[in-house]
């Protein structure tokens, strides 16, 4: 059993067409060449994965054939990276689709994990669950309240998905290991989340009245943390962030893109006006107003120091590759 866990386990990656999954697949292929990796996503695979042990299946997680995957494969580990992001979805239809995927999909994944006796589930949540609020302390710990949906109901699915996973984690702690990861802003050439788009874009508004602090983790470091979560991290909830912090203005300066100074109270209406061309979700305006700095010390007790190799400067400079 021990040998299997280390060398030839079957790994299911949910949300496999994302940039982070691509990198994770590559790392797993290099470090665990005997593992069998199955990737599923409701979207097409974006990039070809160079790993002969990798198989991709396009499917929705709420459909019957998803269960067939569990029945026909002796899955050991699940990576749930399939949270649908908010960056491009604002219409009522799209919000409904997102809710369905993020909540119903997660619920189904967890149910199947218990039914098919999966040994370990690693869930990718986000630091956004804590919310960007003016009274956030610096270095928010994992046991802090999830306040993201206080102001923005559109973040409800994110906080509920996280809460659902942590509830399951404690409820079934004797039956399976579950690791919930809440990373800071993941950036890198293959990541296309809202903050990456904001940093990469030229002529975007930069607040003149606020300058919050940020934490950034490079995509490769995040994929390494995910890989290490497979066997080095015990059940629990973990913030993922480097020790370094940087202000928004400084981050934009390092990336080298241009901004135009703008008072934040005008930013929300402007964001509404340019929504068609600039996909910047409303809730994220508060994240460029107030800091949401997390304490990433807990996970560092379990993963090798070499897991976080990229400095903030380097990660930002590599963003435009």
């Amino acid at each position: 059993m021990e040998n299997k866990m280390k060398n030839s386990e079957t790994i299911l990656i949910i949300g496999a067409s994302g940039g982070l999954s691509n990198i994770l697949c590559g790392l797993l292929g290099q470090n665990h060449p005997n593992s069998k990796i199955i990737g599923v996503d409701s979207r097409d695979l974006r990039n070809e994965v160079e790993n002969s042990n990798f198989k991709f299946k396009k499917m929705r997680y709420t459909r019957g054939n998803f269960e067939k995957l569990f029945r026909e494969n002796d899955i050991d580990i699940i990576y749930h990276l399939g949270r649908m992001s908010h960056s491009k979805n604002t219409s009522a239809n799209e919000v409904a689709q997102r809710l369905s995927l993020n909540l119903m999909g997660t619920n189904r994944i967890l149910e199947l994990s218990i039914r098919y006796k999966i040994k370990r589930v690693v869930v990718l949540s986000t630091h956004h669950v804590y919310g960007a609020l003016s009274d956030n302390p610096v270095f928010i710990k994992e046991d802090a309240n999830l306040r993201a949906s206080i102001k923005y109901p559109e973040l409800r699915d994110v906080t509920e998905m996280d809460s659902m996973c942590t509830n399951w984690m404690w409820k079934y702690k004797d039956e399976m290991d579950m690791i919930v990861l809440r990373p800071c802003n993941i950036i890198g050439p293959q990541i296309n989340n809202s903050i990456s788009q904001y940093l990469r874009s030229n002529m975007v508004p930069a607040p003149i009245d606020f300058n919050p602090m940020f934490q950034f983790i490079h995509e490769l470091d995040m994929a390494t943390v995910l890989m290490n979560s497979k066997d080095k991290v015990p059940t629990g909830v973990y913030n993922i962030a480097p020790e370094e912090t940087i202000s928004l203005h400084e981050a934009k300066r390092i990336v080298g893109t241009t901004t135009f100074p703008f008072p934040l109270f005008l930013l929300s209406p402007v964001a509404q006006l340019v929504k068609k061309i600039w996909t910047f979700p409303d809730y994220l305006i508060d994240y460029i107003k107030f800091s949401c700095i997390i304490d990433g010390s807990e996970i560092k007790k379990h993963i090798p120091k070499s897991s976080l190799r990229f400095s903030t400067d380097k990660a930002l400079k590599l963003l435009n590759l």
Binding site: D135, V138, D209, N211, F265, F290
Partner: peptide, 19 residues
């Protein structure tokens, strides 16, 4: 900490939320 400009200026000078 929620006041525009003042929040930014105070943070740059070292002020922090009294939490």
């Amino acid at each position: 900490t929620s006041l525009p400009f003042i929040n930014k200026w105070a943070n740059e000078c070292g002020a922090v939320l009294g939490d």
